[in-house]
């Protein structure tokens, strides 16, 4: 399979030279096209910092990150925004839908930023909304639709511009278990049927069990890796729990 993301010996330091905090301490891994990969770790383990580095919101202190063979740590400041809007898709914890825009416009937002022409935008929005089953609510506003529909809208927005990789930061963090379940199924669908590559950061075992592969991080280092392979989700879930037990006491949200 084709390699999409390659993280190479990255480090991230905070603080001054007398008092250095290593948020990321030499992490390397690769993500292949069409993979659904999870990053797990306790609060403060550095997983969000890692995501921020990949999403170019934060800079690395050392090391390289390649997305489709392009070194994103070398991208010039003025090109970063362009890179982000063309190559990355985001699913946020609180969906980040704009109240002032209709569902349709929210989905079209990234495309308008990319200056696509109107017909193309229209066609893509229609296609994606049909796939995600939100075609009926396109003209409504976010506060007029249910939480589940908002999730679908957020996912549609992330995938509509056909990014190289979709980054999800604790997407189920604010959801009840039913909604979380729906969202994860949706992400799985995007991954399996639409071929989207997804990198999800989570501390929730249930969410993680949907991934193909999980990288565990502790104190800024890769602690372990778990691959789903042919296992059922139930088996994979238990395996994750075992790793978490090894990880240590500060992971407590074991279901």
């Amino acid at each position: 399979m084709k390699e999409i993301l390659k993280v190479e010996n990255i480090q991230k330091y905070y603080g001054n030279k007398d008092n250095i905090t290593k948020a990321i301490d030499d992490i390397s891994f690769t993500v292949e096209k069409g993979e659904f990969i999870g990053i797990m770790g306790a609060s403060g383990s550095g997983k969000t910092t890692l995501l921020n580095c990949i999403s170019t919101i934060d800079n690395v202190s050392a090391g390289h990150i390649y997305l489709e063979n392009e070194d994103i740590t070398e991208i010039k400041e003025k090109d970063i925004a362009k890179f982000r809007r063309e190559k990355l898709g985001f699913i946020f914890q609180d969906f980040n839908l704009l109240d002032t825009l209709t569902i349709e416009e929210n989905i079209a937002l990234t495309l308008t930023i990319n200056q696509k022409n109107a017909n193309e935008i229209d066609k893509k929005v229609e296609q994606i909304s049909e796939k995600l089953g939100i075609k009926e609510i396109l003209k409504k506003y976010p506060y007029q639709v249910s939480g589940g529909q908002k999730q679908r809208c957020a996912c549609a927005r992330a995938i509509v511009s056909e990014p190289s990789i979709i980054l999800a930061d604790e997407p189920t963090g604010a959801l009840d278990s039913k909604s979380a379940n729906d969202l994860l199924n949706l992400m799985e669908e995007m991954n399996k049927q639409m071929g989207a590559t997804i990198l999800m950061v989570t501390h929730d075992t249930f969410s993680a069990s949907y991934c193909d592969r999980i990288i565990f991080i502790k104190d800024g280092k890769i602690f372990n890796e778990a691959v789903k392979g042919e296992k059922t989700r139930k088996q994979f879930y238990n395996e994750i729990l075992d790793v978490l037990a090894l990880l240590g006491g500060d992971v407590r949200d074991v279901r």
Partner: peptide, 13 residues
């Protein structure tokens, strides 16, 4: 919140 989202989605400063 709105402008921040745009920035995350890749709009230049």
């Amino acid at each position: 919140y709105r402008y921040q989202l745009l920035k995350k989605l890749g709009v230049e400063d």
